[in-house]
Design a protein around this nucleic acid. Sequence first.
DNA 1: TAATTTTACGTGCACGTACACAAAACTAAA
DNA 2: TTTAGTTTTGTGTACGTGCACGTAAAATTA
Lengths: 345, 345
Amino acid sequence: MTTIKDIAKKANVSTGTVDRVIHNRPGVSEKTKIHVQKIIEEHNFQINTIASTLALNKSYKIGVLIPEARVENEFWSEPKKGIEKAAEEIKNFRISTSFFTFDQFDSKSYVTAFKDLIAGDFDAVLMAPVFHKETSQLITHLDKENTPYVFINIDLQGFNTLSFIGQDSFKSGHLAAKLMSVMLADSSEIIIPVFRLNKGNYSHINDRITGFKSFFKEKKSSIKIKDIAIPNFKDLKVISSILDDHMKGRTIDGIFVPSSRSFLIAEYLETAQLENIRLIGYDTNEKNIQFLKNDTIDFLICQNPYQQGFNGIKLLSDYLVMNKAPNPNYHSPMTIVTKENVDAF
Amino acid sequence: MTTIKDIAKKANVSTGTVDRVIHNRPGVSEKTKIHVQKIIEEHNFQINTIASTLALNKSYKIGVLIPEARVENEFWSEPKKGIEKAAEEIKNFRISTSFFTFDQFDSKSYVTAFKDLIAGDFDAVLMAPVFHKETSQLITHLDKENTPYVFINIDLQGFNTLSFIGQDSFKSGHLAAKLMSVMLADSSEIIIPVFRLNKGNYSHINDRITGFKSFFKEKKSSIKIKDIAIPNFKDLKVISSILDDHMKGRTIDGIFVPSSRSFLIAEYLETAQLENIRLIGYDTNEKNIQFLKNDTIDFLICQNPYQQGFNGIKLLSDYLVMNKAPNPNYHSPMTIVTKENVDAF
DNA sequence: TAATTTTACGTGCACGTACACAAAACTAAA
DNA sequence: TTTAGTTTTGTGTACGTGCACGTAAAATTA
């Protein structure tokens, strides 16, 4: 391994000069600078990150702003786990992470948590920008301090994000449509239940639906698709009655649930004893997996939320410690999960 | 952060003693040992890996034994890339990797490469045990030297492997069958072309077939499945004539190719102008992707070979540097790849 | 030409750990 | 009590890098 010392010896200068050249610090004549740079290149020397972090003895604080993992929505416990795992791996680099969580259906709690985070004066931020308007307002504080931030899971546009980590929602809808199409005859009918609570904030729900529909428009326009608005997902009776209305007199062949709540629809299908309806949903939460395993749900599209969290922290750590500029986008794979491969995830 | 110094101060001993306690080295009285251990626990002190590696100044050599990435089989270029990426990430830990490649259809070249590797006196080995008998014979040399080795991609049983990284082949066959079954009517007929060259060495090909058949036996026994032996995959004419024979007079609805050579079958289907035949294969090589994109291949099951290579090296590095014992198995996810999500991989 | 400022470079310590070596504290025999 | 041997403990240096500090040499000014 080539070290700074080696370079210094070859270049007939001291390690201090080499250090100055490497970090582009002032106090080196143009002549020696070029000379040292040449030798660095020749030996394709690279800084030893290990020694560097040790010497720097700097510590970094990463703030994490994500929804709390509630019973009704365990989705966010996955990124949390991924973040914790990554934090564990890099803690020797003196990077600490602090969580700020909020109720993903309550914009006020989002604002509170966000403000707490801003007050914490972090070196970098990993966040799920669930609420658009509130994000626009508060993120100016981060911009002002030049605090780098990465969006996770939700790809809001028009911000100075360092990077986005998550799925391309339109494409994932497209994929769901493909899966649905191989399962259905050409003259089938599909419904898309949309829970109203999701509609407002989560633009990716809409993107998924658009992607889904665009597939059939292009490839199999003979298939009818209908949206069904459902006011909330707390009251099973309401869900049932709305769906009952729509099922009556019609034969529905497929249901596409553009959110992680496909289990609610599965529950309905089971109690209503409706069989031979193909069901595709999102995310591998416990209930979804249960219905996947008993064949009520055919496919789940998984966002790999664990990986999203893990990669988010890793990205920021690389950025902070090694000054490594990330890509603007890291699209997580759209993993298709079935009864048969669910255990490997 | 708590350091060895801090512990030493609290325990009223020197850092040397703390070091001896941490590494369980001799030369510490039972009394002080317990005392120091208690303080270590109280402060839940953990060694700083960064400083540790720097101080140890030890270097490790990992030998990698995998098939060469040939034009006819680009599969193995993926693990190679993964390995190189991981090697890059950990090179500051003074870990070097050396490749020993062989022709995956020539056991002699395997033996030669393996012997070269053994002569290289490596600290750990990552290998694809393509040939069973030869592996049994040569691996004793590694066992004798207590050199840890990890199997990648091929899960040979009965060896002292530190870990296996790869897919559960039976399950992946099962998964392929599920995908096939959603696409086919109940009275369909499926063929499984098996290239003879694969048969002998690669036990996972057989496992995939077994998994595939077991699904239909359980779930849809009305569907007929037939194996078709194909002597090699060099001569397209031979392949065509054999398939022609089998297609004649019959309606084949689905083809399951249990290897990465589904593109050969796709090529046949296109030239023979056979449409409406569902085709499922393995691995995202360039040609397969091409046929996936033009809808000749419906699904590919991906082994994430890049990840396999990457994780293999990471695992060994964790084992060597941090003495972290790995799981006996890391089953890579069975990723379903379609035209719609292929770009994300 | 001397005094002063600026530039260019070298030196030494710190980061946290590992380990060789030195020193001290015991133990047992003379 | 002395002495040698053994066990236990302390000290110093190295790993590779970053940075504060010091100091010649060169450039500028008076």
